[in-house]
């Protein structure tokens, strides 16, 4: 049972504010992704949890005990670094067993635990090798075993697969998720890849410019973004500027229901929520480009007012470049002053 709570945690580097005071509560056994572009403060937040940075203010509570001023070696956290950070002068076994050795554990016990940890990441036969003799994926597995063997209360991962190729990244991500579920270890995972976050997280914390934009399950983040930043950062999104008048707004050849006060607003529509209905030439939007992604087609259609709709359809929907279609939208969100103010969602 390990929970992690952040209360009013902030961080200043000199005059620069890297993290605005923020609060976050992570439940026992949960895997939470910190997602954001570089400079959003996600790595700083992770390093504060791990003890590598002292917060300028606030509390870091692990199982209710404040560790904000505790150095990393005394915290019940373990971190997987982006560069794997294996000690190249030690063997794989030496790397994994080092923490146990420091704790004064007996040799036979260390050997047994190290063996079990290496088996868990599928490297049971690699104990006597040096890190230089391993592939990138294997090194990161060793780094994970090095953390798991210590049975930390909180596992921290700082873009652990960023340097690996897509295929390997997908596989390791799945394995990490399986292990994490099996051990029920509370995990904070930093990434700038939305696919990564959407595919493994129980909850995603979207960050931007040192602030938490939104916290939610992958489905919530994807379908109910609360700010234009989240809407634009996660997945593809049509973001149309529009003027609301008398409870409605028109843009890109579509009239949107908008029961809010008159004025400027931003309308967000997912490409897969747009359907193209064949119409006559000169009417609706003209298809400029079709890109085939195998299972889906990504289409750009230009409306009469110059707005361009990004559309995604299944590959067997017949669409022709240069032809005219009437766009229809099933879901949309209206933002005003950087907040979602109205949402139309039939599902």
């Amino acid at each position: 049972m390990s929970t992690l709570e952040l209360e009013n945690v902030s961080k200043q580097f000199g005059a620069v504010s890297a993290l605005e005071p923020l609060a976050l509560r992570i439940a026992d056994g949960e895997l939470v992704c910190l997602l954001g572009p570089s400079g959003s403060g996600k790595s700083t937040l992770l390093r504060i949890i791990g003890g590598f940075e002292m917060p300028s203010g606030g509390k870091v509570l692990i199982d209710g005990a404040d560790v904000a001023r505790t150095p990393p070696e005394k915290r019940p956290t373990a971190m997987v670094f982006q560069s794997h950070a294996l000690w190249s002068h030690m063997t794989v076994e030496g790397n994994v067993g080092f923490g146990l050795k420091l704790r004064g554990m007996k040799k036979p016990d260390i050997t047994a635990k190290v063996g079990a940890a290496l088996n868990m990441v599928g490297l049971g036969d690699y104990g006597t090798r040096h890190p230089a003799q391993l592939s990138g994926g294997q090194r990161q597995r060793v780094a994970i075993a090095r953390c798991l063997v210590l049975e930390p209360k909180i596992l921290l991962m700082d873009e652990p697969f960023a340097s690996l190729d897509q295929h390997l990244r997908d596989r390791l991500r799945e394995e990490v998720r399986q292990i994490q579920k099996k051990l029920g270890i509370t995990t904070v995972f930093v990434t700038h890849g939305q696919d990564e976050a959407l595919s493994i997280a129980d909850r995603i914390v979207v960050m931007s410019m040192g602030r938490i934009e939104q916290v939610g399950t992958p489905a919530e983040i994807y379908t109910h973004p609360e700010t234009p930043f989240v809407a634009g950062f996660i997945g593809d999104m049509n973001m149309m500027k529009a003027t609301v008048q008398n409870g409605a707004a028109s843009t890109g050849g579509i009239r949107f229901e908008a029961p809010i006060a008159d004025g400027e607003a931003l309308i967000a529509v997912r490409p897969e929520d747009v359907t193209l209905i064949p119409s006559q030439d000169g009417e609706g939007a003209r298809v400029r480009r079709i890109v085939n992604y195998g299972a889906v087609l990504k289409i750009e259609a230009e409306a009469a007012d110059g707005a361009v709709w990004k559309v995604q359809t299944l590959k067997d929907v017949p669409v022709t470049e240069g032809a005219y279609y009437r766009p229809a939208v099933s879901r949309h969100i209206i933002f005003r002053d950087d907040r979602a103010v109205h949402r139309v969602d039939p599902s």
Binding site: A78, M79, R103
Partner: peptide, 14 residues
């Protein structure tokens, strides 16, 4: 590498 040193702190080294 700093990360190597930090990794050592992380597993409990003074």
């Amino acid at each position: 590498s700093r990360e190597m040193e930090e990794a050592a702190r992380d597993v409990g080294a003074s």
